[in-house]
Simulated assay, not measured.
Amino acid sequence: MMLRRWMAAGLVAVATAGALGAVPATANRPHDPTDRSLRALALRHKLHIGTAVDMAALTDPADPRYRELVREEFSSVTAENEMKWESLEPTRGNYDWGPADAFVAAARRNDQRVRGHVLVWQNQVPKWLTDGVADGSIGTAELREILRHHITTVVSRYRGRIWQWDVVNEAVSDPWDTPSTLHYKGFWAEHLGPGYIADAFRWARAADPGALLFYNDYNIEAFGSGNPADDKTQFVHDMARDLLAQGVPIDGVGSQGHLGTQYGNYDPIQVADALHRFARLGLATAFTEVDVRSRLTDGVQAGDPEEINPRLQASAANFHALLQGCLAEPRCLSFTVWGFTDRHSWVPGWFDDPPEGLATIYDEDYRPKRAYHLIKADLVYAGPPYVLPRVAPKPRR
């Protein structure tokens, strides 16, 4: 679905505002900072603005604008799928490194840092592995060795070329799951117990002493009740605290930031508070998969501005809340959007009943939305004393 017609009026308004705000260069203001890329503006704060990359789009000769924006606007990149286990090892013992190698090489050409995503997750695991466990041909001891071998093989191959690894992803349940009390969930916890989390970090550290090692999850943007039985952020905080007490080399916690305009979401103070609390543990933080989806009602799909404009404004406010919270915490190292254009967004294919979309900062024609301009404004106008330079951590031994 192409939602183009309704964007035109908004773009005219943005362009007009930009023209009215433009002033001649002076000694005090040598240039208009809004002319600069997100990448350049964020580096003023030593913050990396990143995007997930769709490799099919990146290598499509008919889509040069996608490549241009990846290169120009972002200083870090994450592969959407190419570094996940099912992509790397579709058959046992046979790794297909081509797409992941091409992704890492492109990042190097563009002088971009790489977030490695993901080493251990219960989704997108190769079928040969899950089938082997299900039929009993792969037992517990062998499964643990397979996991160790996979982590060691992948991290060793890209040693020195990955800035942050998502070592373990989405290991914690949600309050609406059964049972409702928060717990360790999924394939790996079921078959290896929660101890696999500490093992994964230790194996990753042995394979690359220089990479930053992250735990990554969704719905941890702010604290709730403070009870780890039903507050996922508190559960993850306490898990990280306990891992550190055991000497596990965890360096950071990644908050995905998948939000929706139909929900009651966060303000920058709530977000900053959560990041500050993780920082007090000595951990780095990052927003790793930010998007803000909206319901594609009949009115939205028909191009009704009375339905579309409130959603665009709410989307921009949510991006703004997460970024301001990140800017307020010096240990928040990067802010990654999960795809930057509605042309190549995972949301419509996943959220289809009811349909959702409009989740990124550019429309399907690569025109920046209100969210893009608000992110840029945050980066332009933020500064001391409340926004301080990033604190660069050293990998934990």
Results as ranks from 00 to 15, higher is better:
A206V: 06
D208C: 06
D208V: 08
D208R: 04
D208Y: 05
P209K: 12
P209G: 06
G210R: 14
L212W: 09
L213E: 02
L213W: 07
L213I: 07
F214I: 08
Y215S: 02
D217Y: 09
D217V: 11
Y218K: 03
N219G: 00
I220A: 03
A222G: 05
A222P: 04
G224H: 11
S225Y: 06
G226I: 03
P228F: 07
D230A: 04
K232N: 05
T233L: 03
T233F: 03
V236I: 14
V236D: 02
D238I: 07
D238L: 14
D238P: 01
R241H: 07
D242G: 09
L243A: 02
L243Q: 00
A245N: 09
Q246S: 14
Q246K: 15
G247P: 06
V248E: 04
P249N: 10
P249L: 09
P249G: 11
I250Q: 05
D251N: 13
D251F: 12
D251H: 11
D251A: 11
V253P: 03
V253N: 05
G254C: 06
G254P: 05
S255A: 15
H258R: 12
L259E: 07
Q262S: 15
Q262M: 12
N265Y: 14
N265C: 12
D267V: 13
I269E: 15
Q270K: 02
V271D: 10
V271K: 08
V271T: 12
A274T: 10
A274P: 02
L275F: 15
R277I: 01
F278A: 03
L281T: 03
A284R: 10
A284V: 07
A284Y: 07
F287W: 11
E289V: 10
V290Y: 08
D291S: 12
D291C: 09
R293T: 13
S294G: 14
R295H: 15
L296S: 04
D298W: 09
D298I: 06
D298K: 14
G299L: 12
Q301K: 15
A302C: 08
A302E: 02
G303V: 02
G303N: 08
D304K: 12
D304F: 10
P305E: 12
P305A: 11
E306W: 06
